[in-house]
Design a protein around this nucleic acid. Structure first.
Lengths: 198, 198
DNA sequence: AACTTTTTGTACACATGTGTACAATTTTGT
DNA sequence: ACAAAATTGTACACATGTGTACAAAAAGTT
């Protein structure tokens, strides 16, 4: 029968995720990652096949670390706008409290990778489209539940909210104070009539 | 007397700017840039001293390429909100029309570089702070001129506008359609009571 | 012990990339 | 022609990085 893996695959993926989150995709060469994980490049390729394939797994694991996940998991019947407001507030806290000012791995990667040829660009684009569609769906629920005015254009609101998330994540890399981040978020939310006082 | 430069310094900086805009800072190694410019690395170092120093010059030149520049150059007395709306509209057009989906060199760089140790992080942060302060100043003018409600918190509005710019630039790398970009922009502007119909 | 399957290790053959020292070249003025 | 200053070219000594082939090792079963 077969030799077993000498390292924990899941733990390795998390380790790589933190590396990419901090230093970006291009700094995460196969050589650097192998050293980080204490394995040979041979084991790396054998286990993960390619850096691109691993990166996709990293994105998947990272999604559990992002405050947005809480919103994504909303159920029909939940108070969507309260959840949205809370999610953004938590995001502002998380980004301000991150002493390394890492921002958001996914959005950093969009900035770093999209525009280049390759399957990662396609992957990141479709992930972003999915997020936007999900936000749109949630806002439709909110509209059905009377949280949002019936005449509001929910598709446009979803794009504005997606844009707000993206902006905050990138802005937080350079502007780190919670109250500034939250000011931008809250002001925009209020303007979009999506803000709910707790 | 002295030997003359065998290449145009300003043209070289522009060429480098387009390279970094398309492929990002990390892809723009000294070796790659020297080859792009058709000069030896020796000439590169002699002329530009370091990659970091050149990058700062690139950022400076790039600022003339960004639609935001039009807004930055506003004078007291100008219709600020009309200019803001026009600027954002032009930005959406520019980003949608860019077949290479490059987004914004400055914001890409914030995402790619900020959070790392080094003077470039400091430089990018201060540039972003400057932009935000300038937007704040313009919005104060607009408030003085009665374009913005006297009770509005201009500092918060400025942060929201800065966030809107950042979000659009990054989002445009993955979502390329003009009408989606403009929907996000316009919806947010209307919400912030900063939108002006032409 | 032998066999089979899976994983790890090593080597190969390249490629990319860095900063620096200093020789060689270019250009202009005297 | 010579001198001086600026620029370009070359070499040095390293470093980082890639995909691949295949040998060696590990683990369980027969």
């Amino acid at each position: 029968m077969a030799r077993k893996l000498a390292f924990e695959r899941d733990a390795a993926i998390e380790k790589v995720m933190f590396k990419i989150w901090q230093d970006g995709y291009h700094a995460a060469s196969v050589k650097a990652l192998s050293e980080l994980l204490g394995i040979t490049r041979s084991s790396f390729y054998h286990t993960f096949v390619s850096r691109e394939a691993l990166f996709k797994e990293v994105l998947s694991v990272y999604s559990n670390y992002t405050p947005l996940q809480k919103l994504i998991r909303a159920q029909k019947g939940d108070r969507i706008l309260l959840l949205l407001t809370q999610t953004l507030n938590e995001l502002c806290h998380a980004r301000a409290n991150d002493t390394m000012h890492r921002g958001c791995l996914a959005m950093n990667s969009v900035a770093e990778i999209c525009g280049q040829e390759g399957e990662l660009t396609c992957h990141l684009k479709s992930q972003l489209d999915l997020s936007n569609s999900r936000i749109e769906e949630l806002l439709f629920w909110a509209q059905e539940q009377g949280e949002i005015d019936q005449s509001a254009n929910v598709e446009h609101l979803a794009l504005a909210v997606t844009n707000l998330f993206i902006g905050l994540n990138i802005m937080s890399k350079a502007i780190n104070e919670y109250d500034k981040l939250w000011a931008a978020a809250r002001t925009t939310l209020v303007g979009l009539s999506l803000y709910v006082e707790k």
